[in-house]
Amino acid sequence: EPGSPSSTAASVSEPSLHSLAELGFTEAQAGQIHQAVSSLKKRGAGRDVLSSLTVMLVLGFNCSSVLKLLEKCPELCTVKEAQLQQRINNLRKLGLIEGSLQRTVAHYPDVLTVPVKTVKSVMHFLREKCLFTSQQLTHILRDSPQVVLEDLDQLEYKFQYVYFRMGVKQADMVKFRLFRFTLDEVRCRHAFLERRGFYQTPDKKGQTLIINPRLDSVLHSDLDSFLTHVAQASAEEYRVFQKLLAREWKEEELQQGGIQAE
């Protein structure tokens, strides 16, 4: 078989240039695929790359988009055809219609490296514990697919933080794509605003003395405009604040760990 020069491990069969060409890949693209596969070989990958690639093509991606997916997420090669198919079907079942599905995969191919079981448990968690509707879940999955890779404890903490501390309801969390951001990003910006006096936790009736900035201006502004328009602070202040907050959190965690250990 006309393997690439790097093809030494006999157990891993790489897709031949010929078969790749048959799927429509140019020679250069085929070379790149080889590279991607061989870089993963050590991890026992690439057994059935050809059929996995076929699944992606069938999904509607052209050769160059498939290549982009592999660049973003080489691990895709390690997923077996059957699993890939299952995972795609599951996303469809969760409401991602054609078009959305492809966009989500293109934006975040890692979503296909996550077992169906994991995706289901995250969705179950968001529905049962956080009370998102099915439609909201679809939107979360579509706009912030990275949510399926999150640790459930972290996810719960993030949800509770935003729901209780920031007083943001589910609809806005979905609309403003909360789950694209890590807990630390959310907490840091919010805590900064809160300590500056620009953000208040609503009382039982949902009221605050000041008007809180909307979640999107807290999260989606780039740092400069966040500082100038929302926090009205200097970059130097924020830099120091981040350092202090990181230390506060670390110490809080240590303390809680200590309490649990007792």
């Binding site: 900064f192 300590r195 006096g197 602070a233 604040f241």
Partner: peptide, 18 residues
């Protein structure tokens, strides 16, 4: 906030941090 005006937010966050 009345006494310090626009500086108050910066003083406030500092008071509430280490």
């Amino acid at each position: 906030s009345g006494q310090l005006g626009k500086i108050w937010p910066s003083v406030r966050v500092a008071l509430l941090s280490e």
